[in-house]
Amino acid sequence: MTRYRIRYSKEGAARFISHLDMVRTFERVVRRASLPLSLSEGFNPHPKFGFGFPLPVGMAGQNEYVDLMLDSAMDPEQIVCSLERVMPPGLRVTGACLVEEKSPALMAQIERSVYQVRAAREELPKGVETLRKCLEDMMGMREITIGRRKKDGRNVIFDIRPGLLAFSVREEEAALIIEMELMTSSSLNVRPEEVIEAVRGRCGLLNNDCHLYFTRTGIVGPGGRDLFICL
């Protein structure tokens, strides 16, 4: 068995495919591509996948990964070509890498994610400098609390500051772009919407129901280690 890491992007209509449906979509994609899939044992054999940290419904992803097991070795370029021909609109395969078969699950290797939040510039009436100042102040704080609703329905106060690693803002033509690097591990996970909520709460700069376009631009391991390194 050989293990390959597939790098893909998820944009446009495909942003609305939920994580559960992504698993199903990939099963169908690899079957259409006729890759020599390694199937699980048992009566109901299934292709073996290892997904990364789920992308929330509606969020774009530029460099997402999924690991898959093949029965025989293949040229990674060939894998990319075969998959590209059968991806639904909005999903694109941008690379494939042979990785160590016995290395830990992809999910366990992820520590951080980089996000980009895009808004129209008019959503920020006081200008980008005031926002930048606000962000710097926030990065200087020891604690940034937000309300978080737990699965059991309880509301708790949660400190996102330890999960907030980097934060920047810039302008690009008519758009305002906020970039942030956040912890996304099983022990500490901060969502970009929560950071935006904190910015709103503290600086009150962004218009209230403005449209924000979220993209996850990258996923990295501890210390920012690249997870797409080929053997």
Binding site: A13, A14, F16, I17, P89, G90
Partner: peptide, 20 residues
């Protein structure tokens, strides 16, 4: 596209399926 972020099961309306 903007509304889809605020409805249940947005994939119902998004399209972009294979073979469409």
């Amino acid at each position: 596209d903007r509304l889809l972020a605020r409805v249940q099961k947005p994939a119902r309306y998004a399209g972009g399926e294979w073979n469409s």
